[in-house]
Design a protein around this nucleic acid. Structure first.
Lengths: 164, 164
DNA sequence: AAAAATACCATGTTATCCCATAAATACCCA
DNA sequence: TGGGTATTTATGGGATAACATGGTATTTTT
């Protein structure tokens, strides 16, 4: 069964879930959580697709399905619009493919590190089809905001969806 | 036969019922009650889907039908909205899939244990399509409150119905 | 040649597997 | 129906595998 909104997602595909805190060593290496790696390796890719998150001080990351989704998004835009120029600069100009080494680690680029204000520890947060990489303190602040917003909207949700 | 109100529930599905108290050992393992396991294994899954309950100091848990319900909920949101970002952080980021080992046990994550204030014993409470995991004392307090509210509600009702 | 990236190896911790046991439950057959 | 046997279940422990992480050596880049 395919999603009507996400042509690249079906309900059988494994999703990025949960969060993991990992250290960055002196060489700048971080382990990708094994759980995430096993999802990424499903399409045979030894890379992760990354770009600075558009609306948060975090890094957006994922596998082939994420990069394909971004490509598709671009294709749907008017070729000569400002919107397309802006988005392709913001996403493709700044996106990177990081190689995952034999021990499951990557090296984050300076640009990504600076955007997310990362120092020596990061949190990997699963968001379904993609995941984010955060500086731990920034993430806990963001999470508090998110939970507050969700609670405010919970009445709406719980009426439509029993069980939440 | 599928329900039109709850597309992921059918009337033949077995429900999580009753409650069971189990111990957490030194390695952090807890047995999932056999009764619950037999329901979970019906869809072939060796995992339970868990997240911190939105409105209680407890863990919400269930099988494929619960996780699919959440995926569907996310799928209905506008892909690039703030609402979706917040919800996916709060739901996907805090959800976990716990592997059930060959003896029917799981290891609860630190985050879940902290949310539910669990130490060395838990109560599994069946809630139909899902179940909850509680620290025993907290659950009995919650039960008392719930029963009190039910009694108050009844008083109100009987006052309204005076004269009939 | 120097710096950076990559491969390879080592270690402590944690999760996972496998087996053992005791209690509870289900089963069977006289 | 009763009484004994087999199975299931929760729980503990030891052995093994996986994982994050640090370090060293080798290759590549510039």
């Amino acid at each position: 069964m395919l999603s009507h909104k996400y042509p690249f997602m079906d309900f059988n595909m494994q999703l990025f879930l949960s969060k993991y805190k990992n250290k960055i060593d002196q060489k700048g290496r971080v382990s990708i959580p094994a759980q995430f790696r096993s999802i990424l390796f499903q399409d045979g890719s030894q890379k992760i697709f990354c770009y600075p998150s558009l609306d948060a001080e975090a890094i957006d990351a994922g596998g082939d399905s994420l990069s394909r989704e971004i490509y598709a998004l671009m294709d749907n835009l008017d070729p000569y619009s400002d919107e397309k120029d802006f988005l392709s600069t913001a996403l493709f100009g700044l996106s990177e493919e990081l190689r995952i080494d034999s021990d499951g680690r990557v090296i984050l680029s300076d640009a990504l590190i600076q955007h997310a204000q990362i120092s020596d520890e990061v949190i990997f947060v699963g968001l379904g089809q993609k995941f984010q990489i955060w500086e731990p303190n920034r993430f806990s602040n963001y999470l508090q905001d998110a939970q507050k917003k969700v609670r405010e909207q919970r009445l709406l949700l719980s009426k439509k969806n029993k069980g939440f």
